[in-house]
């Protein structure tokens, strides 16, 4: 009898206990679908992405959408106030969300957000970094790893070039950004575990 759904891709963390697990799931799906569509539109605009096989485009998006959303929606996590803004625009404090069952994932999201925001990336840098997050040749189920790898290398070179140009005295930013990739994987794994728990025990 879950009463809360502490994902900011909802309008609210409160779940109507009268509703069935299926209808809760349907509403949740309707809430996050526009954000997923935006990720797909973003992917289509990455030069070279549409040249990958359709199978690999889907595989990359399936594996990486959550990580892209984490990067895109860091603004929902207010590190100073320790609040999370849900889709309705309403803010909830970490303490309130924790009382609703949010645990390690929430803490890790704040840690990631704080470190990423500290880099003060421009919109262009953030966009290119997001493309690097999405186009990862080590995702499972890819049929043409070499093509994905070639695109990944092109994007990483472009990111390094942009960071070097914009921050000539702070090349460590590029290294720090690449080190965010395993952090995102870790968040993705934690999120997947939560989803599995939710699906099995809605």
């Amino acid at each position: 009898n879950r009463m809360h759904l502490v994902c900011p891709m909802n309008t609210s963390p409160y779940v109507d206990p009268q509703k069935s697990g299926h209808s809760i799931w349907e509403e949740f799906s309707m809430s996050f679908t526009p954000a997923v569509r935006e990720v797909v539109e973003f992917a289509k605009r990455i030069p070279g992405f549409k040249d990958l096989s359709q199978h690999d485009q889907v595989s990359l998006l399936k594996a990486g959408t959550f990580e892209v959303l984490v990067v895109r929606f860091t603004s929902l996590f207010n590190v100073k106030e320790r609040t999370v803004t849900f889709l309705s625009g309403r803010k909830y404090s970490v303490e309130v969300l924790r009382s609703m069952g949010a645990g390690d994932l929430l803490n890790s999201m704040f840690d990631f957000t704080e470190k990423l925001q500290a880099l003060n990336l421009s919109e262009e840098e953030m966009s290119l970094f997001t493309a690097v997050v999405l186009v990862s040749a080590d995702r499972s189920g890819l049929e043409n790893v070499n093509s994905v790898e070639a695109l990944q290398e092109t994007l990483i070179r472009a990111l390094r070039s942009l960071i070097t140009k914009n921050h000539p005295n702070e090349i460590a930013i590029f290294t720090k950004l690449l080190l965010k990739l395993p952090d995102l994987r870790s968040l993705n794994n934690m999120h997947s575990e939560q989803l599995l728990a939710f699906k099995v025990h809605p």
């Binding site: 799906s29 996050f32 997923v36 797909v40 889907v58 998006l61 399936k62 594996a63 999120h191 599995l196």
Partner: peptide, 27 residues
Amino acid sequence: FSDPASNLGLEDIIRKALMGNMEEKQE
């Protein structure tokens, strides 16, 4: 339930968005 992305219906949303689903446009 071994694939959380499939559980979410993510693959379906992704495929439709990639292909520019006609049914959704009619809606």
